[in-house]
């Protein structure tokens, strides 16, 4: 598979340098495959941008909630203020069970139970952290939003007041504070991602039957209105 560098020599060097990590460092190629479960929200690699979640270039060694421009949850900000820094150890705990580490994180992810899977993903992510200059110029880049939605639909300016009314139907299940227990957070999403996701439900590309039904009767303007409203709901 065409992907980047964890060169065996570099890996060996890390293992020597950080003996405590030795058995935690996994297989970056397997990690690249496993990362497919993350790319709905996170991009990584050259040109990666913040989407539903922040991009993950340079995540290792960074203080939690320290990446400028991304609207972190209050819980994540507090964790960063308290000194949480992303290392193999803390990232491993976070992706094992996100809410065990950051109780009200907006990351809607059940967690990865298998320590080997976590080690593989972290080995993959590690490639995009060590030195920003090592981030590759082209392949491989995990993109959050591959879609074929008509640009005209994405260009619709949503009416936030109509969105607020329509949102009341979403808020029977989804929490306005971004909490996510059993039902994902839908606040603070980039408009494009929100619109793409809702149209994917409407076209029954995404599988959830409740969401297919709810999205199915919303027209393009209504989806844009909801995206505009939820983008700014804090």
């Amino acid at each position: 598979m065409a992907r980047l560098p964890i060169l065996p020599a570099a890996l060996a060097a890390i293992c020597v340098a950080g003996a405590a990590w030795a058995e935690e460092i996994g297989d970056a190629e397997k990690g690249a495959d496993l990362f497919s479960t993350c790319i709905g929200c996170h991009e990584v690699g050259a040109g990666a941008r913040d989407r539903i979640g922040p991009h993950l270039n340079g995540i290792f060694g960074r203080r939690a909630a320290a990446h400028d421009g991304y609207p972190y949850s209050r819980s994540m900000q507090r964790a960063g203020d308290d000194g949480l820094t992303w290392t193999f150890e803390t990232l491993d705990a976070y992706i094992e069970n996100p809410r065990a580490l950051v109780s009200k994180t907006r990351m809607s992810f059940r967690g990865l139970k298998d320590p080997r899977d976590r080690a593989d993903i972290l080995a993959y992510l590690r490639d995009f952290s060590d030195n920003p200059s090592d981030v590759p110029e082209a392949e491989p880049t995990a993109r959050a939003t591959d879609h074929d939605l008509d640009p005209a639909i994405l260009a619709i300016q949503g009416d936030p007041e109509y969105g607020e009314y329509l949102s009341s139907e979403c808020l029977t299940c989804h929490l306005p504070d971004g909490g996510a227990e059993g039902i994902p957070s839908i606040t603070r999403w980039p408009v494009e991602d929100f619109v793409v996701a809702m149209h994917a439900y409407k076209r029954k590309l995404r599988p959830h039957p409740v969401m297919q039904m709810m999205a199915g009767r919303l027209n393009d303007e209504e989806i844009a209105a909801l995206a505009a409203y939820f983008r700014d709901l804090d």
């Binding site: 009341s168 808020l171 029977t172 299940c173 929490l175 306005p176 909490g179 227990e181 059993g182 039902i183």
Partner: peptide, 14 residues
Amino acid sequence: YEESEGWYAGITAD
């Protein structure tokens, strides 16, 4: 089932 728990939190907040 987990979704129903989420709904309970959602509707009671609403």
